[in-house]
């Protein structure tokens, strides 16, 4: 198995004809992903990268029955695009775009929760099930089909974890980038739940960073509900307080959200800690024996 995406995923690309969407859609198609169409309002009827372009998600829904959507539209329009996909009945929505206003996400999150939709992101690299489907902007070549499930708030840091598990021959079941924003569509816990239930996944790597308390909440969930070994690395051990470190969510506020606090909590809950990002792969290998 694997989680969220596989070879049966029928992907719709929102903002299809834009330059970033085009670049990454080409790479996804090359990886073997089944892109059934795209949406760019006003360009319906055209063909792009060999797939049909529609004016709306609803039109696409009727014509090509996508079961997942990936969003590349600029940040000011993401709220609309996510809610459009939700309204059209798509149950897995991946929003790559960075810079979505937090108050937009506040409303979007409430709505998608009501509708039971899995939104990944925004501000994330997407989801890949190696050898089956790539819904995102990660470099496909570093992945290897295998047994490690990876969840991360950071894009490039995920790639490090991927590369290390690939180099050690472990490979990945699915890699999910949940994004670095304060209000992500999907939490660590949502993905932990899926990995715990997935037969292919034998160990889980959780890459966290400073800011908020998502890692602490995940730690408690792991202690109470996850039987598979979890290995974690927390970025930002050297970050100063009160400064936003790139990601909108990566800020130590009022002494809360430090790497040290997160690591302590994770250790208390039985999570294996990779002290440095270079040791993620080695730690997984050690834990799996």
């Amino acid at each position: 198995m694997s989680i969220l995406v596989n070879k049966d995923t029928r992907l719709l690309v929102q903002g299809f004809t834009g330059s970033q969407a085009t670049l990454h859609s080409e790479q996804s198609i090359e990886y073997g992903t089944n892109i059934v169409g795209g949406v760019t309002p006003g360009k319906g009827g055209q063909t792009h990268l060999g797939a049909p372009v529609f004016n709306s998600v609803h039109d696409a829904m009727e014509a090509v029955r996508p079961n997942a959507s990936i969003i590349f539209v600029p940040a000011p329009f993401c709220k609309d695009s996510i809610l459009e996909a939700a309204d059209a009945g798509i149950k897995l929505i991946i929003c790559i775009t960075e810079g979505v206003p937090t108050l937009d996400m506040l409303v979007v999150k409430k709505r998608i929760d009501e509708l039971g939709i899995q939104l990944i992101g925004p501000n994330c690299p997407g989801v890949i099930t190696p050898g089956e489907a790539k819904l995102g902007i990660m470099p496909g070549s570093i992945h290897l089909p295998g047994s490690v499930g990876i969840i991360s708030r950071s894009g490039t840091l995920t790639y490090e974890a991927v590369k290390q598990t690939t180099d050690l021959g472990l490979g990945q079941s699915t890699c999910v980038g949940i994004g670095g924003d304060p209000i992500p569509g999907t939490s660590f816990i949502d993905v932990l739940k899926l990995f715990e239930a997935d037969d292919q996944t034998t160990a889980i790597v959780m890459v966290g960073e400073i800011g908020g308390t998502a890692e602490e909440e995940a730690a408690e969930y792991i202690r109470d509900h996850v039987t598979k070994p979890v290995i974690s690395y927390i970025a930002g051990q050297t970050a100063p307080a009160g400064k936003r470190m790139g990601h909108a969510g990566a800020i130590i506020a009022g002494g809360k959200g430090t790497a040290a606090d997160k690591i302590k909590k994770l250790q208390e809950c039985g999570v294996h800690i990779a002290e440095n990002l270079l040791q993620i792969g080695a730690k997984v290998k050690e834990v799996l024996g």
Binding site: G180, A235, A250
Partner: peptide
């Protein structure tokens, strides 16, 4: 990438 940037800082310190 913001995460890798923090990870790189941590690695330097390490």
């Amino acid at each position: 990438g913001a995460g890798l940037a923090m990870g790189t800082m941590d690695t330097i310190k390490y």
